[in-house]
């Protein structure tokens, strides 16, 4: 083992400077999320506020093409009633089906429809904004940041799965009015502390009091950023609550089963350890019983 230890020490010492040069973009601050951890659940009010932010700010440019209106009323989601979800759906115009004349007209959205995308295709988006605003359906899982060693090992035990939402939250209030000295941005770009490369095409979307909250939550950029991020976590992982609930049941079951198997194993092997001379292979019908 001495040789193994030497090799390990050598490798670590060689790697240390390499590790140090990795700090460019600051790691987003870790927030407290209601849905984190083994018993995590979405905060219904927060998801509803997040939807409001999405509808009043984000949806001008960003779609949610994988999210159906019906899911707004699903258990484990924002907790709207079916009537509320139907009403929200009806406020959108979606592409209808061909009528008898073969014409396709827009019609009000129904529960089975998904949130309409703001652009018919990427080219249309690029023509308008010189960039393609990504669809937000799974964005909370499609973004993250490098945790680095040894934090990623700890994440296995702490169940830290919120890199995506933490990054989104940080990004939304990570804008700086002007880039630091010596940094020039490409035209039409904005300086964001947390965006990889810092030059982001999206203008700062949130300002204080931009969205009216009626439930008393603070109308600040920070709160908006958290709410929309939590909402996007739900759109990305709509069955998170069911997953954690089933997980706990499976966990308890497996621990009970493993415990029983352990004692059964001890019983079965007990005889072997006491009476080695009785160890001949033989059919189970001939095993001695207590």
């Amino acid at each position: 083992m001495a040789a193994a230890r030497t090799i390990l020490a050598l490798a670590v010492s060689l790697a240390a400077p390499a590790l140090a040069q990795e700090q460019e973009t600051p790691a987003p601050p870790m927030n407290k999320w209601s849905f984190a951890g083994p018993f995590g659940k979405y905060d219904r009010a927060q998801l509803q506020r997040g939807l409001k932010v999405y509808r009043e700010v984000c949806q001008v440019c960003h779609g949610l093409k994988l999210v159906a209106f019906r899911t707004l009323a699903d258990p484990g989601g924002p907790g709207f009633t079916i009537a509320q979800a139907t009403a929200i759906a009806a406020e959108y115009q979606v592409k209808g089906e061909p009528d008898d004349q073969g014409e396709v007209k827009d019609r009000p959205g129904r529960l089975a429809d998904v949130f309409p995308t703001p652009f018919p295709n990427d080219q249309a988006a690029r023509a308008r904004y010189n960039a393609v605003p990504p669809d937000l359906s799974v964005i909370a899982k499609a973004r993250g940041y490098e945790r680095g060693f040894p934090r990623w090992v700890g994440d296995i035990f702490t169940q830290y799965q919120e890199q995506g939402v933490d990054y989104l939250t940080a990004l939304l209030h990570g804008y700086r009015d002007s880039p630091p000295a010596g940094v020039t941005l490409p035209p039409g770009n904005f300086y964001n502390e947390y965006f990889p490369g810092h030059a982001i095409a999206m203008p700062p979307p949130l300002t204080d009091k931009r969205v009216d909250y009626t439930d008393g939550a603070p109308m600040t950029v920070e709160q908006y950023a958290k709410d929309i991020s939590a909402f996007l976590m739900w759109t990305a992982e709509p069955h998170l609550e069911a997953r954690k609930r089933v997980g706990m049941q499976v966990f308890i079951f497996l621990i009970v089963l493993a415990g029983l198997l352990y004692f059964t194993k001890k019983k079965v092997w007990h005889e072997v350890e006491l009476h080695p001379e009785k160890l001949k292979p033989r059919p189970p019908s001939e095993y001695p019983r207590a």
Binding site: L260, R289, A290
Partner: peptide, 14 residues
């Protein structure tokens, strides 16, 4: 016996 009970319990849970 107690041993039988353990075997039956384990098999049932599995």
């Amino acid at each position: 016996t107690r041993r039988d009970f353990l075997y039956i319990a384990t098999a049932s849970v599995a």
